[in-house]
Design a protein around this nucleic acid. Sequence first.
DNA 1: TTTGTTATTGGAAACCATTATCATTTACAA
DNA 2: TTGTAAATGATAATGGTTTCCAATAACAAA
Lengths: 132, 132
Amino acid sequence: MGREAVLDVLSRTEDHLSAEDIYMCVHETYPAIGLTSVYRTLDMLVNIGLVYKFDFGDGRARFELAEGPKGKDHHHHLVCTDCGRIVNYRDFIDEEVALLKKTEEGLSKKYNFAITNHLIQFYGLCEACRKK
Amino acid sequence: MGREAVLDVLSRTEDHLSAEDIYMCVHETYPAIGLTSVYRTLDMLVNIGLVYKFDFGDGRARFELAEGPKGKDHHHHLVCTDCGRIVNYRDFIDEEVALLKKTEEGLSKKYNFAITNHLIQFYGLCEACRKK
DNA sequence: TTTGTTATTGGAAACCATTATCATTTACAA
DNA sequence: TTGTAAATGATAATGGTTTCCAATAACAAA
């Protein structure tokens, strides 16, 4: 039942919300829905493939809508290791995706993996943090 | 002075050990060294750049020696989302690294990031887990 | 409508990798 | 020898996530 609520929150933002972020947003509209249910719902949505779960190294999972009809465009992430800011970039995606696809095929064949997913992230210091 | 002990453990394996794995190995040779020191040492080695820290989504950090004189060859990872098995692959690395470098330059310029690092991982089901 | 059975829910407790605290030991300089 | 600072590790605390479980909702059968 919280399913629509969670998807709704995720569809309204470009940010990468944590479970608790999502809980707080959902809670404004549906105060009855608890944190446990948010975790449960997110888990289910990730399993279904409607939502992606990321780890950017700050100790909590982050979620975003998978691309698709209602979803965002495909993108990868640029993460500031100091302040945690995350940039969605789409500029080099086509080339990356082409290579990833090729690599996936090669890896599938060689290691007998059924590859379902990949992850590309860049880490560094954002402009603000470089100046500190 | 667990530094050598930790590096030694990491240099003897192709596995991706957790902090506790490393602690247990170190403990056999140096029973005096505690878990806290292992965490501290790992943190320092990661900061220095001698060791890489990874997250494969199972809730604990994994460590491996950075490539270099004493280190392993550069590789990326293929992770089984069911059993957690991790394969180091080196087959497509050259192409990947070339593209990553190019992408890094583009991203640095466009978003004013000082990029220090990148991450490529593939997720899927290994042969054994596909048959379950 | 009642009754019984099952699935869903959320609050609180448990879990567990990691981090912080702090008393103790070690290193080393004066 | 003595005093000060750094290093160490056992223990406690932290905090995101999971588990437990009693309460509620949903729904089927009578």
